[in-house]
Design a binder for these strands. Sequence first.
DNA 1: TTGTAAGCGTTATCAT
DNA 2: ATGATAACGCTTACAA
Lengths: 338, 338
Amino acid sequence: MTNVTIIDIAEALGITPSTVSRALSGNPYVKESTREAVRAKARELGYERNVHASNLRSGKTHTVGIIVPRIDRQFFSSIISAAESILDEAGFSVIICQSHENEEDEISALKTLTESRVGGIMVSHATGSRSGSHILEAMNRGIKMVQFDRVFPGFPGSSVTNDDFAGAYNATMHLIGNGYTRIGAFTGPLGTNMFLNRYEGYKAALTEAGLPLDEDIVFENSIVRETGYANAAKAVERGCDALYSSGDYSALGALDFLKEKGIRIPQDFGIVGTANEAFTSLISPALSSTEQNPVEIGKKAALALLRLMNNETSGENLVVDTELIIRESSDRKHFAKK
Amino acid sequence: MTNVTIIDIAEALGITPSTVSRALSGNPYVKESTREAVRAKARELGYERNVHASNLRSGKTHTVGIIVPRIDRQFFSSIISAAESILDEAGFSVIICQSHENEEDEISALKTLTESRVGGIMVSHATGSRSGSHILEAMNRGIKMVQFDRVFPGFPGSSVTNDDFAGAYNATMHLIGNGYTRIGAFTGPLGTNMFLNRYEGYKAALTEAGLPLDEDIVFENSIVRETGYANAAKAVERGCDALYSSGDYSALGALDFLKEKGIRIPQDFGIVGTANEAFTSLISPALSSTEQNPVEIGKKAALALLRLMNNETSGENLVVDTELIIRESSDRKHFAKK
DNA sequence: TTGTAAGCGTTATCAT
DNA sequence: ATGATAACGCTTACAA
């Protein structure tokens, strides 16, 4: 265990701890030769700053926290990875907590972080977290917070979200542009803002194109492969020739059904997913999807947090553009020859 | 900002800070009524323990660190997720650092963690980290460490690895059992122990089955889709009827080639990948692969670290079994009817 | 069962 | 440019 302190360095050099502290922390009022000597001795003795003593005395931390529902979802791990790189660069270590999609764990994660006196927190809330009162309360206590992806609108602090409305709108417009005329929708639970916004985008596109909205071909809670398969069957039965899906897995389930029935994709049926999961480019036919740019979200959120901690802003709401990735499953214009 | 201390609680209650400290930390020599009163007042005042003061005074931390090459790889994020759940349960927060596959960042991550006086560290080293001397040095300074997945053999402390040899052996044996007789291999860089072990497992299976080892059909550094495609062409040209691959992406590349050439899978050609990436079950034909059980690795490593910090062991080397997942790409016995 | 008092390692405020 | 000193908030002998 390292137990070398600035006092040891001071004694070895015949100076005082204050000078050692100043030398090590880059205080300008230190003779260059002293600084050199201190640095050399510190290295020689294997000195390591005790961040706890430092934090206690100075009241400042070089740690921030990130709370996500689960680390092992690609979307979140990409966000964390990007954010970590930026925060690390700025001299902050990152404590990561998982809420496991439930409010209780989210509250305890928040407690862990505030007890550690982190300088700020990035949080994407659990679906189980309904009111967000614990988050609001922490914000009101003065904790710098950036909400990302899943946010409680109207809270203080900053936020970074995707433009879900535009993503869905663009995807639906793309289907319309490829000549599909009866386009169904797979949505997530519409109680969640994100899914609601996507549904609104879908509707807006239909409206703008003069197509009727038929709720018979809107399937809520279609987010897994199995429901996708089952609802694709209904969609086909109800005369759809395309599907906009709020998720890639349900779109995959739809592909399963369509391939099984021998329905040609994209000639007879078009489909676009959402999230641009890794598998979308690997399956056949490759699935068109909407890229959510998690790396961009992570970077923007980290920078927003740094600004917040620096008092350069009291809060800002940032939007990250989505990007439609057109692949075989919906690109009738190019793949029809196949 | 919270600034309520145990002194505030003590004053409000007309007792001393020591008693408050004892009450809050579960010291048994505290009257039940006192404990209740302290807890109530703490809640009322919005008290939060200052972990820095606590750590400084007690010399103990409730924080551990995890260093991985990249958080955003599914394999590592699954390990972290599993480890975090267990460590969190045990009362530890987790600081996560990325080495970005280079030694410099790994060293700086190690420094960040030791400066934070973490109680222990889980580490999977960067490919760019050749000697591991910084890791060894930290271990020798008394830092509790568990290496996982990519380990420097012979180091003190604990380790958790996959049985890569057995995984490759089983995969190759499975191909042999399905009647394939000229089985090529895609390996990773053989300078890395893990890949070497897999190659040895492949060779052992051939030997045991009395099949010749032909280095013409062993392709080193086949780890991405593109090299898989190119080397599959060579393998076919050289008469292979099956491939054991040390990675899933190169196996995917091989599938690309085989499908393009109209070679029937698994009737005319069998293939098994490694890692059981999410896409393996989603593509067609579904790819057989070797599951590395990251969740198991994460759990085992976390528990090993807890034992190490508890001085229940001075080091142990644990092995996590891999699991062969048989899918269409290699299962001639069941899919041949197709 | 509770109080007293010292100290963990650092930094900030004086003073020199 | 450096030294002396106090203090950050907590835990822990030791005493009572």
